[in-house]
Computed example of a mutant assay.
Amino acid sequence: MRIDLIEKSFINISGKLYDSEFINLVNIKDNKISLNDRTLFLTIQEKEILNAQSIRGFDDAVYVFKYKNVYGLIADLSIKEYDSGRIKCHELVLPDTVQGMLSNLHGYNCEAAPILLGHRKKIDYKSYIDRLQYKERFSLSEDFVIYVFCGEEATKITEEFLDEEHMYVADGHHRLYTTSLSTFKNSVFSCLISLDYLDIQPIHRIIPNVDAQLFEKAKDFIYSRFEVLSGDTPLSKGKIRIGYGKEKFVVNLIDLNSDAFWNNDIYRLNTQIISQAFRIFDTGSLRYLSNGELIKYKEISSKKDVIIETFPIGKEEFVECANKNCIMPPKSTFFLPKFPSFLIFKQYK
């Protein structure tokens, strides 16, 4: 696998950290952040605050980071590796999303959030850090440190990936595909983390505003077709928990006489429960929540909302599906940790 140095990059040294979903693209002009009228989702005051944040530029660099006990690398990935099939994807790409992203690429000049790629090999980044060959060190918090490597020292780190046959997209399917269609952008800003460090968490479903009579019909269908267990039964592969008001129960999804993809929990949930029991065929009408979001949601949820809790896919099952080029249903995986947005910027034009 060919991993490249970032030819022109910047790091935000203001000490501010933003969620990974905050912003994907930004303009940098004369070594300063330059968000303008094109960025519509931020107020003038918010843009002024962001534009005032200090950044430092580095050429031909990679960034090794340590977050708690997790090590990873921020670098550049040639889109040729994606086009060759060595980057394994597992999620459906939506044309409308890609169209908007292609348009935005022309309006900005820097990527501000890396895609997330998992890989098999566990690289000893600590040995590179201990040799003190990095150019700069930035301590962003007690748990989060970034080391900047440039030139030959950076190349030594990227060469660690030459014997890696595949990488797996954990987040960034649309950005990869958008770049593959672009006529002027030939690489993708990337965060590389060993699968040993990555955690796959579940994504839970909310069916909003379900009438009590409709829920009873769905419940009758489920009890007649599935094994139903106590609501306090711990979840595991093949089990989902359904909650409505004060009622909750666990459902054993039906095993299919096939491979891991067909027995993927989200596929079975969509086909066996959401479409058959609740008669919902457009999953765009659902809400999707992470573990943390679900805890907060339960405190304020409507009594008419159906909460469906899921169990995460295992890493080996995920890799098996990706290696077979299976396209999982949307919102099948939620990987952690995710690298912050608006911290490191890769200039692409």
Rank of each mutant, 00 (worst) to 15 (best):
I280C: 01
S290W: 02
I266V: 14
T283F: 14
I266P: 05
I280K: 03
Q276V: 01
R287M: 15
D305Q: 09
Y267Q: 00
F281I: 00
I273S: 10
N252K: 06
L253Y: 05
D255M: 06
S275P: 04
N291D: 15
I300K: 14
L253E: 07
I274F: 14
G284Q: 11
I300S: 13
L289F: 11
T283L: 12
N263R: 12
N257F: 09
R279E: 15
F261R: 02
D255C: 02
F281G: 01
S258T: 08
L289Y: 11
S301I: 07
F278Y: 12
K298E: 14
L256M: 08
Y288I: 01
S290C: 06
S285V: 04
K304V: 00
A260E: 09
K304Y: 13
I254G: 01
V251C: 10
F278R: 12
L289P: 02
K303S: 13
Y288M: 02
N263T: 13
R279G: 09
A277C: 08
S275W: 07
Y297K: 07
D305G: 08
N252F: 00
K296H: 15
V250I: 07
L294M: 14
I266T: 08
K296D: 15
D282L: 04
L269N: 03
Q276M: 10
K296L: 15
N263H: 13
T283N: 09
A277V: 06
K304I: 00
I273E: 08
V251M: 09
N257W: 02
K303G: 05
R268D: 12
D305P: 07
I254W: 01
Q276I: 00
E293T: 07
F278S: 10
V250A: 11
N252R: 06
R287I: 02
F261E: 06
D255W: 04
N263P: 10
V251P: 05
N257C: 06
F278M: 10
V251G: 10
G284S: 14
F278P: 13
L269P: 01
F278L: 07
I280S: 02
N291W: 02
N257L: 12
Q276Y: 05
D282C: 04
F278K: 11
Y288F: 08
A260V: 13
N291V: 07
S258W: 01
D282S: 14
I254Q: 07
F281A: 02
L253D: 06
I273A: 09
S290G: 12
D259L: 14
L256W: 04
I274C: 12
N264T: 00
F261N: 07
K303H: 13
R279T: 09
N291H: 02
D255T: 01
Q276C: 07
D305T: 03
R279C: 12
K298W: 05
L294S: 06
S301G: 06
K304L: 13
Q272N: 10
K298T: 06
T271C: 06
S275R: 09
Y288K: 01
V250E: 10
G292V: 05
D282W: 04
D305K: 10
L294T: 04
N252C: 06
K304M: 10
Y267K: 08
K304G: 02
D255K: 12
S258Q: 11
D255G: 01
Y297T: 00
I295T: 15
N252Y: 00
L269G: 01
K296G: 14
V251D: 07
L253V: 01
N270A: 03
I274N: 12
L269T: 02
L294W: 09
I280D: 02
Q276E: 12
